[in-house]
Amino acid sequence: MANSSKPKVAVWKFASCDGCQLSLLDCEDELLAITQEIKIANFPEASRAVIKGPYDLSLVEGSITTPHDMTRIQEIRRLSKVLITIGACATSGGIQALRNFKDINEFISIVYASPEFISTLDKSTPISTHVKVDFELRGCPINKMQLVEVISAFLSNRKPNTPEHSTCVECKRKGTVCVMVGKGTMCLGPVTHAGCDALCPTYNRGCYGCFGPKENPNTDSLAKWLISNGKTSDEMVRAFRSFNAGSDAFCKESQVNEEKD
């Protein structure tokens, strides 16, 4: 493909740990092949070269937490034909959404000695709260092979093949013995979106919800079942309030349990 006809891809960062964009550089076997097919037009973590927009594809990492970033995402949307969010922060507000349940001024004073220097919003929100998003890739962090699939799908103008069933289904497919049934270990697998290939149960621990809620998750049933088996409401609040605390289903379930507590 001639250089000029390669699609221009940009990678953008908002409040995040850099892990999801690092996933692209972690594709050690695929990275050079991918860069044969696309033109990296803006990817500050990897390159000081900046090619002006518009961009054919923008990959967006991180959540919106500052007034400046609220304006920046509008500009990025305007410059992007296709905009895909990568990871829990960009898709549900991420771990930063823990602030949504507390008084932000108290948080500022815990971490920073001179709060007057800090500019931040009281809520951490996903990109879709602010602009139209064409596809959301889940995960904290994303699965790098799913990222390769999303880029391939974009290049061939098809829908990405990323299953929407639960982590529980992944476990059954792998033949992993259920940690909840077998060992009584608390597991969010029944309500969590697939994508990690049921990693935690393979390592003898319960799923803790990195990929956020699956479609129509029955969180109420899971929480009640766990409580009837000895877990506390406080444990439920913490379980649903981690890396996807801002997603509707997990947010509501944590609030229901907080009221019980």
Binding site: T66, L98, V111
Partner: peptide, 12 residues
């Protein structure tokens, strides 16, 4: 100018 990220407060 990376946005402030309050981890110490989240841990409480």
């Amino acid at each position: 100018f990376e946005p402030p990220r309050f981890f110490e407060a989240f841990l409480r």
